[in-house]
């Protein structure tokens, strides 16, 4: 469903020169599974997902979604994906219903099909009480629900969630994760990026651990645990990242960790 091969992205930065945000990333994701991207801030997750949603162009490599090339067939790609990110906000001066309807219409869904579909979505996501509320008056949780409804309105085969639980309270975050799990059960191909281990453990079938533009390890959670002889995902994550950063940095981080340990 999603094939990513040797994807690179570099951009020029005034201070740091040529910055490599993605250094040759490859992976595959399949329908009916949740592919997790786990990595600290700045690992390149958002860049990768922005490339997959055709908002950025890769500097090298290739990616196809359902057979459509992200570089040369961006319009086709966007029809197949639903993208929910911390950066895809809700219009302030539109109600929940208007917003979802707008994107449904942009996807070319005829009005007579759109209304029943939206009724179903609003029921499923329990959004009926915010139906006529303007975006500006919504809480973060309500906005995220609208974003999800917006991403689902055209029933895409691929869904991309980029740090979708950021800023949500525990209740809303749990509800979001159960929605994601439901979607997987419906046979969607889902990419789920986060920096929270527990979300990965709860949701993902396969995980790629990303750091500084590289995928350090990839596989099912069990494969990763047995390969690296470490049962605790957080420890495993930490090991991978520190060994990638090299010994000098490791010493510094260890010091920070022991300091943090003493204080906790």
């Amino acid at each position: 469903m999603i094939h990513v091969r040797e994807l690179t992205k570099a951009y020029a930065d005034l201070e740091r020169g040529q910055v490599v945000a993605l250094a040759g990333v490859s992976f595959d994701a399949h329908p009916g599974g949740i592919y997790g991207l786990l990595g600290p801030n700045g690992a390149g997750k958002t860049t990768l997902l922005r490339i997959l949603s055709t908002m950025l162009q890769p500097s090298g490599g290739a990616a196809t979604i359902n057979g459509a090339n992200v570089l040369t067939q961006p319009a086709l790609v966007r029809r197949q994906i639903g993208f929910v990110s911390a950066n895809t906000a809700v219009y302030d001066r539109m109600t929940a219903w208007e917003m979802v309807e707008y994107f449904g219409r942009l996807h070319g869904i005829p009005r007579e099909n759109l209304t029943p579909r939206m009724e179903g979505l609003f029921d499923r996501l329990q959004m009926n009480e915010i139906r006529d509320l303007l975006g500006a008056k919504m809480s973060t949780g309500m906005k995220q629900k609208v974003s999800i409804a917006r991403a689902l309105v055209h029933d895409p085969p691929v869904l991309i969630f980029d740090e979708a639980t950021v800023g949500l309270d525990v209740l809303v975050a749990r509800a979001l994760m159960s929605t994601v799990a439901e979607l997987r059960d419906q046979g969607k191909c889902i990419i789920y990026s986060t920096h929270i281990m527990r979300e990965v453990e709860r949701l993902c079938d396969r995980v790629a651990i990303m750091h500084r533009g590289h995928i350090l390890a990839e596989g099912t959670l069990d494969e990763l645990r047995s390969q690296h002889g470490q049962d605790d995902l957080e420890e495993l994550f930490f090991q991978l990242i520190t060994s990638h950063d090299g010994p000098s940095r490791r010493r510094g981080e260890e010091a920070v960790r022991s300091f943090a340990g003493r204080n906790s």
Binding site: T54, M55, R78, R79, N87, L106
Partner: peptide, 10 residues
């Protein structure tokens, strides 16, 4: 932040 929402629409 709504421009990105529109850009990922078809």
């Amino acid at each position: 932040g709504t421009l990105e929402t529109l850009l990922c629409s078809p």
